[in-house]
Every structure is written in C-alpha cells, then in structure tokens.
C-alpha cells in the first residue's frame, strides 16, 4: 500500500466521526521505484493532506519530509523528489491500519489493506 492510498482512506465504521488519518502499524516496508513526474506531483500537492503524509512517511522510516509545506516549495527539485518518494515509492507491505477513534485494526497483507467491516460495524 502506497502512502497515496493511505492519504485517501479513512475508517468508515458506525459511530466514527473522523476516521482520518488511519494510524499505521509497520511490520514490513518495501520500496519500489516509480518514474518521476513533477507535473503530477504539483497537481497532487493541493489534494494531499500534508501532515498525514509527513507523519506516515516518518513511521515508515523516512524522515525527510518537512512538518509543513507550501506551494513555493514546489519549485525545488529536491523537495519534489522527496515528496515523490514518500507518496509513491514507499509501500506498507505487511502491517495494519488502525482506526484513530476506535482502535479497530485493518490488516495489510501483501500490500493490500483489508478494509472489510463486520456486520455490526456498518
């Protein structure tokens, strides 16, 4: 699971008012190279929840993203490459996503998060 996916998913259990961001439990992280596309990243910047991405990347062992970011940073190639790496190249291969309100764990196996809810959680 890429951090791009983590940046979109939220816990949708019954009774949860804010299920975002999901906490990450790491068992195994893998890195996969992706072609660098600055235009895509510039477009994504306004859609990404920055703090959630920066925190998630740190938990995944990558501490290069600044706490806060603004559009002016998009002129820096160095910044874009770090953003690229965190958003697209880091994968949670094994571990879990945890609902921030209820603590319910959603397992991630072979890179695929299992967000299925039980009947009484819908």
């Amino acid at each position: 699971m890429r951090l791009l996916t983590h940046n979109m998913l939220s816990s949708n259990m019954k009774g949860v008012s804010n299920g975002f961001p999901l906490r990450i439990e790491v068992e195994k992280v893998v890195e996969k190279q992706v072609d660098f596309n600055p235009d895509f990243l510039k477009n994504m910047f306004s859609k990404v929840h920055w703090k959630a991405l920066a925190d998630a990347s740190r938990i995944m062992g990558y501490a290069e993203l600044p706490e806060e970011a603004d559009r002016s940073m998009l002129d820096s190639d160095d910044f874009l490459r770090k953003f690229h790496h965190a958003l697209l190249e880091l994968h949670l291969e094994e571990g879990a996503l945890v609902c921030p309100e209820t603590g319910r764990r959603f397992p991630v196996n072979k890179g695929i998060p299992n967000m299925l809810l039980h009947e009484d959680e819908v």
Binding site: M8, L9, G111, M115, L116, V122
Partner: peptide
Amino acid sequence: SLNAEDLELDIDYIQCDVRNLGWRGQV
C-alpha cells in the same frame, strides 16, 4: 495482481465493500 504483473503494470489494490468505502476528499 497476477494479471498486472504479467503486463508489467503498477496497480494498487484495496479489499473493501465499495458501499462502505471511507474516503477523504476527491483525490
């Protein structure tokens, strides 16, 4: 996943009931 691998495509997957998908914004 196997199909994507065969064609050397890079695709992400989520196991979820679409009806209960929890999603932030229009990314």
